[in-house]
Design a protein around this nucleic acid. Structure first.
Lengths: 204, 204
DNA sequence: GTCTATAAAAAGATAGAC
DNA sequence: GTCTATCTTTTTATAGAC
């Protein structure tokens, strides 16, 4: 029962708790948005009182900020794992959406928080502005490297990147409301064929 | 001061007030979302007390329902007015986005409420499910009539419609956060060229 | 039709015991 | 580290005066 020197049990327990709280918070934000979420509901999910949660995160905004940071961390992991098995950038995107179609909670948290962030004084506004700008830059670079000098169908790489993100977001919105009517992965592949017909992303 | 029989002054005033309240409510929902909006803020905008508003709409949900109904009414007006001057369906869409780029408030109300509607028990959930389904059907029909039997670039008319709506929504999200970086009308035209290269929507 | 007063509930946050 | 108790504010909604 004595704590090993290099990694004190208290710390590990502390960090574990924090992560558990953040995971629960992401879930609750997905279900109810940031405004609709309450600290008490998050607390209940992890078996704590409201004040138990406030011990780890001083207030609701701080909780959201840390949820978004964790999301970035997870996204990076998923991105790298997915990129491993994908031959091309377009394949990678198709795989990513395939994966997302199995994680409605994650998708919903993103969709709801991103849209909410455009409202007045929303605490995640700057986060999403930066995140979209960064994603546009990253995808632009990936498309440039992949598709070489000539833009696909006369569409600049940057415009293709912006449109790609728009399609991803927009399909998620429709899919969340009508999962049976909107085949998100198939529709993304259709769009990918539009911007680059030759290198078809192989379905499954 | 006696009321004319056919159209009592009280009625007219009553309806005018209602409309003024609904317009203010749409504004507030755009700025803060449904959850973040309060009846008191809406009341302030129209120079009434909170209870003044509740005299016209019994509760917050009813207010939202009527805002959405008004939106449908306005949309129909704008749609018809825009369709007048547009030669083709794709032209019409380009014009519509051009118009929307001048009305950030309207766009924001739609984006925020639509995303919020995917959350648990949201009062506008069914409205948006129906609305998206209806819009998909309408656009599909328009594309079929317009582009004839052969689907554009091998993409079915229905898939093209779904993707079109996705692009519209997704571009709005990015444009609302970074209006200077995202040229929404130009990007929509680029997408329209992708699905139908021959009939280019003329810029401006 | 509009207001004041007020009830009733919800939610964020602090203080302090254990 | 976690809880109970409590404060404070906000917000929806009702009751009733004018």
């Amino acid at each position: 029962m004595t704590r090993p020197p290099g990694r004190p049990q208290g710390r590990a327990g502390h960090e574990g708790r924090r992560t558990a709280i953040l995971r629960a918070a992401l879930e609750v934000f997905a279900e109810r948005g940031y405004q609709g979420a309450t600290i008490a509901i998050v607390a209940e999910r992890v078996g704590l009182s409201q004040q138990g949660v406030l011990h780890y995160f001083p207030n609701k905004q701080d909780l959201l900020a840390n949820v978004l940071a964790l999301r970035d961390q997870n996204d990076l992991d998923v991105l790298l794992a997915t990129a491993q098995g994908s031959a091309t950038t377009l394949d990678f995107l198709a795989d990513l959406v395939e994966r997302n179609a199995e994680r409605p909670g994650i998708v919903q948290s993103f969709t709801v928080l991103a849209a909410e962030s455009v409202t007045q004084d929303h605490p995640a506004r700057d986060y999403f502005i930066d995140r979209y700008a960064q994603t546009r830059r990253m995808l632009t670079t990936m498309l440039e490297r992949e598709l070489g000098g000539d833009p696909p169908r006369g569409v600049s790489h940057q415009d293709a990147a912006t449109l790609l993100i728009a399609v991803l977001d927009g399909l998620q919105q429709q899919w969340l409301l009508s999962p049976d009517e909107v085949d998100m992965p198939a529709l993304l592949r259709t769009f990918l064929r539009l911007i680059h017909p030759e290198a078809d992303a192989n379905p499954q």
